[in-house]
Design a protein around this nucleic acid. Structure first.
Lengths: 218, 218
DNA sequence: AGAAAAAACCCCTTTCAAGGGGTTTTTCTA
DNA sequence: TAGAAAAACCCCTTGAAAGGGGTTTTTTCT
């Protein structure tokens, strides 16, 4: 039916190939058409401000320049009627929760199938939100964790962070002491205090924490 | 022309959505058609052994069960006439070099456009190899760095990978031995052999390697 | 300025990690 | 099927890691 107005979709992902392929997929869906593609958040913002306003935005989380978090926030603030569907490989609870808090309406993992993709688009347009079973489970357990843990958020000072970075090298504690211009005993104290704070009991535990929380360059 | 035999392409990627979208893209190319899709290396191996033999295989590097490295190796050994085109976001020299050493014919980054994708397919079929400008530059600088070190690419067997994953926990080697149903001495051997292979000399070194190479879940 | 807290320092002990030397058992292969 | 290679096992030594107990110095707060 030519007269039915199609849902206009915008796609933002820095992987051109995936983006293009997704665009074709969307265009093949009944009732949807791709309005434009964008490389990152900035790009999408620019195009929308040039009066290319889509109904739905498909967003990756990891993008250069302006990532999915910022983009969602901006969209939600300036164009609240635009529905944001997050499309990513990141399946950790924190990211999911963060995106919904910022205003996302749906969250789709990249290992979803095309049918689920279509379902997500339909839901987001008609029912306002979309949650896959997997994502909703993650959300619930994530909120759970939020409840009991985290009495006080772990706050590390600069020196502790510094020590943590050194702990991720193959230097011995003695050598780290030299690097930090401290006595080995003091390093023992740092270690102990971090063991307590981070609830670990070995150097490997320190390393894993540092990496999980992005405190070291990988 | 209906009589022209199309180039049969297989696609292996654990992200279903991307995979499906890519399949459509390939099917839209003149002279190409998708023979099958696979979730990982094992999957592709099974299908090929069931006499579904493609001309070209599109491979992601990071996959569960059997990753791109192993898959390329197996293909090159057992079906040397199948051309392998690597399609990934990993753009570091080591990965690129490793894949070519293992028998890949082309290396395409996911931020390439569809035209480049088509070019890569054409090149790989007709001219045997495909190198984008970016990748060939990486190769050259990478080989430079490589000149003195790293003759052979590091290949780890399943048990070594297993041990590596355990090494990223807070268990002691003795406890790891129990978990793996091996004597602590054998664990010593694994450790030593990995120290040599990976050119590290501490457990922290093992952990960092495992993480940098995506062998553990973070 | 004086008390309290935090940071840096010191000593000692036990266990773990790492490096070296070997033997037995299994697996591959010529 | 003998012989080589690889995998699993064992012993011993040294230094590092981890946990416990302190003291001194510096900072912070009224």
């Amino acid at each position: 039916m030519k007269t039915v107005k199609k849902i206009q979709v915008a796609i933002a992902d820095d992987h051109v190939l995936l983006r293009t392929a997704l665009a074709r997929l969307v265009n093949s869906f009944d009732g949807y058409s791709v309005l434009f593609e964008a490389d990152n958040g900035k790009d999408i913002r620019a195009k929308i401000m040039q009066h290319q306003v889509p109904d739905v935005v498909l967003l990756d989380v990891n993008m250069p320049e302006m990532d999915g978090f910022e983009a969602t926030q901006w969209l939600h603030k300036n164009y609240p009627h635009i529905k944001v569907l997050v499309l990513t490989m990141l399946s950790d609870e924190r990211t999911i929760i963060k995106m919904f808090r910022l205003g996302a309406k749906g969250y789709l993992l990249k290992n979803a199938g095309p049918e689920e993709f279509k379902t997500a688009l339909d839901s987001i347009v008609n029912k306002d939100v979309y949650l896959s079973e997997y994502v909703s489970n993650k959300l619930v357990t994530g909120l759970h964790k939020d409840a009991d843990r985290d009495e006080k958020p772990v706050i590390l000072n600069e020196k502790e962070k510094d020590f943590l970075r050194w702990a991720c090298t193959e230097l011995s504690y003695k050598e780290i002491a030299e690097k930090m211009f401290l006595s080995p005993r003091t390093i023992d104290d740092y270690r102990q205090s971090l063991f307590t704070k981070l609830k670990v009991h070995s150097r490997v535990g320190l390393v894993m924490y540092a990496i999980r929380n992005g405190m070291v360059d990988i």
